[in-house]
C-alpha cells in the first residue's frame, strides 16, 4: 500500500493500523474476528438461559466470555498486537485497564462491605 497511509517497520504503528498485508489477508482477519465474536456472543446468550450448567458458575462464565470477546475485538478489529511497533498502544491500553479495574473493583468491593456492615435503612431511621 502507499507510503502515505502506512509506516514502515522501523516506526510505530498507529492504533487501528495493520502491518502491511494484501487486501485479501486484511479482509480474512476481519472475517476471522467476526466469526470468533459471533461464536462467543452465541455462547454467552446460550449460557445465560440454560439449565445445563451449574447455575452459580453462570456469572463467572459470562464475565470470562465477555473479556474473551473484548480481546477478540482488540486483536482483530483494532489491531492491537504484542508486536514492538505497538508498544505505546498496549501501554496506553494497560493504563486504561488499570483505572477501569480500580474504579469497578474498588466500587464493588467498598459498596459490598458497606452493605454488609450497615443495618438496613429502616433500622437506622428507627434509631434516630
Amino acid at each position: 500500500m502507499s507510503d502515505q497511509t502506512h509506516m514502515h517497520a522501523e516506526h510505530d504503528l498507529a492504533p487501528g493500523d495493520e502491518e502491511q498485508h494484501s487486501v485479501g489477508v486484511r479482509i480474512l482477519g476481519y472475517v476471522v474476528g467476526l466469526v470468533l465474536a459471533l461464536l462467543l456472543t452465541a455462547t454467552s446468550f446460550f449460557i445465560a438461559g440454560t439449565d445445563l450448567v451449574w447455575q452459580p458458575s453462570i456469572p463467572v462464565a459470562l464475565i470470562v466470555l465477555a473479556i474473551a470477546q473484548m480481546g477478540v475485538h482488540l486483536v482483530f478489529f483494532l489491531h492491537i498486537t504484542t508486536g514492538p511497533d505497538n508498544t505505546n498502544n498496549v501501554l496506553a491500553l494497560a493504563f486504561g485497564l488499570l483505572v477501569v479495574f480500580l474504579v469497578v473493583g474498588g466500587t464493588v468491593w467498598i459498596m459490598a462491605h458497606l452493605n454488609a456492615n450497615m443495618p438496613p435503612m429502616d433500622q437506622i431511621m428507627r434509631m434516630q
Binding site: D12, A14, P15, D17, A92, V103
Partner: peptide, 21 residues
C-alpha cells in the same frame, strides 16, 4: 497519522474509563 490516531486512542481509553464508572 500516528500522532493523531494515538491521541484519539488515549481519548477512547478515557471514554472507556468514564463508562467503567
Amino acid at each position: 497519522r500516528i500522532v493523531t490516531a494515538y491521541g484519539f486512542w488515549v481519548f477512547l481509553l478515557s471514554d472507556i474509563v468514564m463508562f467503567s464508572c
